[in-house]
Design a protein around this nucleic acid. Structure first.
Lengths: 204, 204
DNA sequence: GCTCCTATACCTAACGCTAGGTATTTGAAG
DNA sequence: CTTCAAATACCTAGCGTTAGGTATAGGAGC
């Protein structure tokens, strides 16, 4: 990852552009190199300036986000795209994925999530909302199958001992897995773990 | 509030009626004066016996809860109604309100919440689930201000000791409040508490 | 005035979770 | 074949929560 990420924003609502500028404003790892209120302007600008990242509204007058992605992904392969939308309908997210987006954000995104998304995508990763049926990868890539199994039971109010019995394991084994889960999530309490799952929208 | 509240129950599932009878059984402030498994029987019984309260299922064969309310509210103005339902869809709750119900309960309601609801309604109050946009009262009616304060800090991953320090209390006091919270929510683990809040859509 | 609820404080014992280890086996990736 | 991740099992010590009490004081409501 370069040390300053260049970012372009395209959204037909000025308030959204302004909001994003504000949210990103004080992060000196990210520099906004331009913005547009319509697809055609965005298209020309992005081809010219070749930003690392482009945040593109799904719906825009004239040339909409999906169409824009289709045309741009071949012209500017070094730019990675994050689709912006008002909502997280499954098929919207799939459309964005198949159009070549590397991420998907709701417009009411918070500062932390926005930063996380942009840095993940700039770093070569993908950032899509967890949708169970679409991309339940956040949890799956992060935890081993056994850890997921145990995590589910933990969330069902089962003690380590009860989990051990149910899975025919030793209590110690279950506790080892829980330790590893805690290490991965950087949490050291149950509440912390649950907050982590909530913040990362991980559902099991 | 009279010292004994008379209560009528109408629900087409016997198991629900039995469950409610059990939950209420050992409360000598409330006396169950009848029950029915269908709307028509309930209608006749309530007109005849004029209970203080009637718990009415939203969905019943023949004459359903909403229709029943519409006809009864004028015939028996002294009776106050609480609508029962499997879920807390907003529009269901609004329907109940506009049909003249004074309260709304999910069928998986706990003992404490049930008692609270019945007494609130019998006392002239209203009792509707927390819906942000409708009536964010569930948490407020269910917990004391101090309990709410402590609950928030618990959810922020604070230990009883840390909470005690922050509020200039004794650790024992905080633990007493937590015990009371557990009693009201019928949970005995942190995870259980969190699941309760999630299921009841209580946000703090 | 009396009762109930709330908030406060304390205690003990038991239970469960977390942190720090060690160690073996198995299967996949290199 | 070697290396590494994952799963397994064990141990101790310490921390935090839960369950069972008791008890006092203030305020609201009847």
């Amino acid at each position: 990852m370069k040390d300053v990420i260049t970012l372009y924003i395209a959204d037909d609502h000025q308030i959204v552009v302004d909001g994003l500028k504000l949210l990103i404003g004080n992060d000196d790892c990210i520099r906004i190199v331009g913005y547009a209120y319509d697809g055609a302007t965005a298209r020309a600008d992005i081809i010219e300036r070749r930003p690392d990242l482009a945040l593109i509204d799904r719906r825009m007058p004239g040339l909409d986000g999906i169409a824009l992605l289709h045309t741009l992904r071949k012209l500017v392969p070094e730019t990675r795209f994050v689709m912006l939308s008002m909502d997280t309908e499954q098929h919207y997210i799939r459309d964005a994925q198949s159009a070549g987006a590397s991420g998907y954000l709701q417009k009411n995104v918070g500062k932390e999530e926005l930063r996380k998304c942009l840095k993940t995508v700039a770093g070569g990763g993908q950032y899509f909302p967890d949708l169970r049926s679409a991309k339940p990868e956040a949890a799956v890539t992060m935890f081993t199958p056994r850890e997921l199994e145990i995590l589910k039971l933990v969330l069902e109010e089962q003690t380590s001992f009860a989990i051990a019995e149910k899975l025919s394991l030793s209590r110690f084994t279950v506790e080892t897995h829980r330790k590893n889960i805690g290490r991965k999530t950087e949490t050291n309490t149950l509440i912390g773990l649950i907050n982590f799952l909530r913040e990362h929208k991980i559902e099991l």
